[in-house]
Every structure is written in C-alpha cells, then in structure tokens.
C-alpha cells in the first residue's frame, strides 16, 4: 500500500505578483513591500483588522494562507487539531528584528518585540483559522523540499494531522518570497502528487 498525499492548492507571492494554483491572480509591480502587501489585502477584499498590526513576514505568510484556503478548502471536515503548519525560511525574523532594535535606541516597543520570532506567522495563521495542530518553523539557507516533504508525510501518514499547510515565507527589507502548499490526503481535480519535485516546480520563480 502506497501512502500518497496531494497538493490540493498552492499560492506563491513574489516580484509583485500573486499566483494561485499556477495562475496569476494579481500584479502590482514597482510598489515597496508594505504598499504591495496592502494592495494584495485590498485586492482580495480581506477584512481582518489585526492585519495592520502584523510585521511584514506575518502579513506575507498570512495573505498567502488566505488566498491558498479561499474557495475549495473544506475546513469543516477537519477538527482544529487535525490541521497543522510546517514552514521554513532563511532570514528568520531579521526584517522585524532590525526594526525592533532601532526602536530600542528610543524606547523598546513590545508590539515590535513580539514579532522577533519567525514562528509568529504560524501563530497568526492559526489564530485566523482556528488551526491547533502540529507546527514547526525551520531555518534553511534555501528551500529544502525533501526535508519539508518528509516532515509533512510523517505527520499525515501517522494520522497526527489530516491536512497540513507547508512551505516557505521569507522577508528581508525589499526581498520577499512565499510559496505555500495545502497538502491533503484526498486528490481533487486540480491536485498534483505531494512530492519534493512538484513542490520545487511550483516554488521556482
């Protein structure tokens, strides 16, 4: 018996463009990162006041998760503990760390300090969607699809999770990239096999 899992949806955001399942849904080239992120939020008509308080890493990952889950994801068929997140990046929370430490020279800002951890983006996605399952944030110099795939398969194939969002969310100043994959046990009409090769194909710019 082969245990196969499927990428039932994907979302990538980079170079001023948003893609879902390989299709470009939005473009705003030339804007600085904060303005670009706000334009994505507005374009998709999202309504979540906490968005404005987030650092750029959380905004980027949170937006990608919103777009990833929009439409065909049937959250109701899962318990909160059955949905998890495995994310990675290369710059941890350095983008916000620099901003936080600039604030220290004047008066240290608790609202910036709380974002000096990379896993806060996972927390923000969990709060928004009431996801309570397994999660982890890994640091990798480049996206390691083999490793991420193995982690997710372990959790799904042992029924620790029933579905998992995995992938990459990285921000440092004007450089940014996210690629999120929704991995489920059942295929749908758009799904591809959950494999390192298929993740890398979607990840590639």
């Amino acid at each position: 018996m082969l245990l196969e899992n499927y990428i039932t949806s994907s979302c990538t955001i980079e170079y001023g463009a948003v893609f879902k399942d390989g299709e470009q849904l939005f473009e705003n080239k030339g804007a600085g990162l904060p303005d670009f992120l706000l334009s994505v939020y507005q374009h998709f008509q999202l309504n979540y006041p906490k968005f404005y308080k987030m650092d750029n890493l959380s905004k980027l990952g949170w937006l990608a998760a919103e777009i990833l889950l929009k439409g065909n994801f049937k959250k109701d068929q899962y318990q909160p503990e059955e949905i998890g997140l495995i994310l990675a990046n290369s710059n941890s929370s350095l983008d916000n760390d620099i901003k936080y430490f600039d604030s220290v020279k004047d008066i240290a800002s608790p609202s910036l300090f709380v974002y000096t951890l990379p896993n806060i983006v996972i927390g923000e996605i969990c709060i928004r969607n009431d996801f309570k399952g397994e999660h982890a944030f890994f640091i990798q110099d480049t996206f390691d699809a083999d490793f991420i795939g193995q982690q997710v398969n372990y959790l799904l194939n042992r029924n620790i999770l029933k579905t998992c969002i995995c992938g990459w969310a990285d921000v440092l100043q004007q450089d940014y990239k996210t690629a999120l994959f929704l991995v489920e046990k059942q295929k749908n009409e758009n799904s591809v096999l959950f494999s390192a090769g298929n993740m890398d194909n979607i990840f590639k710019p």
Binding site: E81, V114, I120, G133, E134
Partner: peptide
C-alpha cells in the same frame, strides 16, 4: 512527543490550557 497551537493570541497563553493539554 507532540506539538499544538493555542490559536488564541500571539503573546498571551490560552485561557483554558486545552491546547497544551492536547
């Protein structure tokens, strides 16, 4: 071993402890 998330607040723990208990 096991890991869970409160899905409640980024800097304050769960009010119930249900998620750590899970």
């Amino acid at each position: 071993g096991s890991v869970s998330n409160d899905a409640n607040h980024i800097s304050g723990p769960s009010r119930t402890g249900q998620e750590l208990s899970y």
